[in-house]
Simulated assay, not measured.
Amino acid sequence: MKKLLKKYGERPLIIYLVAFYTFIALVDFMRSFYFLYSGPRRVTNDFTGLVLVSVVDWAFVILFMCSVSLLTKYLLMKRVSWTKIIPLHIVLSILQSYLVGFISPLLLTYELITIELGFFEKVTHTFLFNVTTNILLYSSMILIIYAYFYLQQVKNQEIRNKVLENSLIKFKLKTLESQLNPHFLFNTLNSISSLIPKNPDTAQDMVADISFLLRKFLSIDDKNFITIREELEILEYYTNILKQRFQEDLVITQEVEESILHKQIPRLLIQPIIENSIKHGFSQENKKLNIHLSIQEKEGSILLSVENNGKKIPKYPIYSNSGIGIINIKERLQALYHGKSDFYFENMSHGVKTVITIPMA
């Protein structure tokens, strides 16, 4: 019995049924008290019997409907057809009404009416007199039972969808990051390779910087978000590598609000933007590149901008040529913020500006 209750019992549902029928029973008792005991056409002097009938009726109906709730969950779990469930509930509603009809003749003494009737005649009389009300009450409580299970099913489905969505997001982010890290490392190693014949000491310094970056990547491998302070620490070593390669032709400056250094942003968010600025900024007309990074809080969001004085964006840019890093950022922002972030490029009088706005966690 305990296993049955544990498997099919629903405590919140039982509480709802008890609360509902307790209210109905109290109203019905007041009605019976007036019409049967204290009204102008009183039919019984047995007040104790009247109270006892109400209590036993309340207990019987609660027990019966709790059993029906167990049966209902069983039928739903077994996916029983509605063509079988509906006739079953019709039979149960009539059965409950008939069984309730036994309570009053057994416990209540009618001194002024139905004295000449036999016991089963009294039962039949009570049943027929209350059958409509009892069936309506049964139907109301069945609606509560099915509404509970329906809402529970909807809630469980939402939870399953959320878990699935989170799993898909994690999978997508891992896939994107698996693309980003080799891409970044390939570009950096390519730079080191080009420096070895010309300047082996500089290449050695770059190897030291990239070894730190590799350790840092391993330490944050299981994180989707890191603090701005951590992101800037990674960026510092990355820019050291860039400066070794470009020397005085590349100047990178920063302007970051101290108060938001502990705030979290998607990992490796800034590095691809710097890389993209260098890739598209240098040209025959722009042989020296200045890049300015700004991170600040604005209206409850983190506003991150990267400005450079390099080549401007064409009027009709080919976004497919933006590079894997920028495409990666767009897809990660969409996966993490579901359209609540912003990412765009714009031309300025002196160059190009890249802007990212993300909600502040």
Rank of each mutant, 00 (worst) to 15 (best):
K3H: 08
P12N: 08
I15R: 15
Y16V: 04
L17S: 00
A19P: 01
Y21A: 09
T22I: 10
F23D: 03
D28W: 07
Y34E: 10
F35G: 05
L36K: 15
Y37K: 13
G39K: 02
G39D: 04
P40T: 04
R41T: 14
T44C: 04
N45C: 03
D46K: 06
V53H: 06
L70D: 06
L70N: 03
Y74E: 08
L75M: 14
L76A: 09
M77H: 11
K78A: 12
P87R: 00
P87V: 00
V91C: 09
G101N: 09
F102K: 03
I103G: 07
S104L: 15
S104Y: 09
E111K: 08
L112V: 12
L117E: 12
L117V: 04
L117M: 08
T124A: 14
T126L: 04
L128H: 13
N130V: 10
Y138P: 02
Y138H: 14
M141G: 02
Q153S: 11
V154I: 15
V154P: 10
Q157P: 12
I159T: 09
I159L: 07
L164H: 11
I169W: 01
F171H: 07
L173D: 02
T175N: 03
H183Q: 09
S191P: 02
I192P: 04
I192F: 03
I196V: 12
P197Q: 02
K198F: 08
N199E: 13
D201K: 14
D201M: 04
A203I: 11
Q204M: 12
D205V: 10
M206N: 00
V207A: 04
R215H: 06
F217S: 15
D221E: 07
D222G: 02
I226N: 06
R229S: 15
E231D: 13
I234H: 08
L242F: 07
K243C: 05
K243P: 03
I252P: 05
V256S: 01
E257W: 00
E257C: 02
S259M: 00
H262L: 09
L269Q: 07
I270L: 15
P272Y: 03
K287L: 05
K288C: 05
I291H: 12
H292Y: 13
K298M: 00
E307W: 15
K311T: 15
Y319H: 12
S320T: 14
I324F: 10
N328L: 15
N328R: 06
K330E: 04
K330T: 12
E331K: 13
K340F: 02
D342S: 14
F343H: 00
M348W: 09
V355L: 11
I356R: 00
P359D: 01
A361S: 10
A361P: 01
